[in-house]
Amino acid sequence: MPYSAEISREAPSCFVFVIDQSGSMSDKFVSIGTPMSQAVADTVNRFLQQLVIMCAKADGVRDYYYISVIGYGAGGVRPAFTGGLANVELAPLSQIANNPARIEERTKKVSDGAGGLVQTTIKFPIWFDATAAGGTPMREAFSKANQIIERWLTEHPNCFPPVVIHITDGESTDGDPSAEMQHLQSQASSDGNIILFNVHTSARSTNPISFTASAAQLPDQYALMLYNGASVLPDFMRKTAMEVLGYELNEGAKAFVLNGDIDLVVTAIEIGTRPKLLR
C-alpha cells in the first residue's frame, strides 16, 4: 500500500519548499496588510519551528525529515536559508534546529489552567527572510527541485515520499515549467510518488479555488498549467484535509490552490506536511 512507510531516523522523509521571491511578491495581502513575501516567510519559519519542536526530544532533535527551501527571483534560483545555513540546499532537521539566522522573543498568552490566561515568552527562530525582487524563473526552480528530489530518492529509495510545496503569485518568466512539474510528479520511492503542491496566492485573493478535482472552473491557461502540474492528493492527505478543513474533498482533488490568501497557503502546508507514522 503506498504512503505507508514509517518515517524514522533510519528512513527519513523530506520536504522541499519552492518559493517565488519575484518583485510582485512585495504586494500586500489586502486582508492582512502584509507583503505576500513577508507573510510567506513567516509561514515557512513557523512551519519549520513547529516541525523542529515536534521532532525534539530531551537529547536533541531527531532527523525524521530533511528540509530544502529554494527561492527564485532576482538572484536566480538558490537556497533561501540565511545565517548559518546560507547556501545549504538540503539540511537535516537537527541542523536546521541548531542554526537559525536569529532568534526573536515573542510573548504568547496561554491558559493558566483556571480559566484565565497568563503571558509567557516563546522563542521565535528565523531561518528565512522575505525577499521580493526581479523575475520569476519558475522553470529553472523546478529543474532544481527535480535535482534535489532525484538525489534524495537515489539515497532513500524506500522512504515515505517527499512532499514539494511550491508557492507563487505569478507567471514563469523563463519558459513553460510544465515538463519539469510533470517529471517531478512522476518521481517516486517504493512507497509512492512524490506529492507536488502548487499553491498560487494573490494580494486580493478574489475567486479563490482550492483542492478542486476538476479543471472546469479554472479561468485561464496559466491556472490550468499549475493545476495540471499539481499531484492528486493521496487518500491519507484527503483525510488530513477533512480534519483541517472540516469537509470532505472529492476523490481526485488536487494539491492545488489558485488565488489563495495566506490562510489557504497555511492550510495547504498543513495538509501537505502533517506527519504520519513517526517512529
Binding site: Q49, I53, A56, A58, I122, K123
Partner: peptide, 8 residues
C-alpha cells in the same frame, strides 16, 4: 529554543 518552547 525548541525545548524551551516544547516544555510549555
Amino acid at each position: 529554543w525548541y525545548l524551551h518552547n516544547k516544555i510549555l
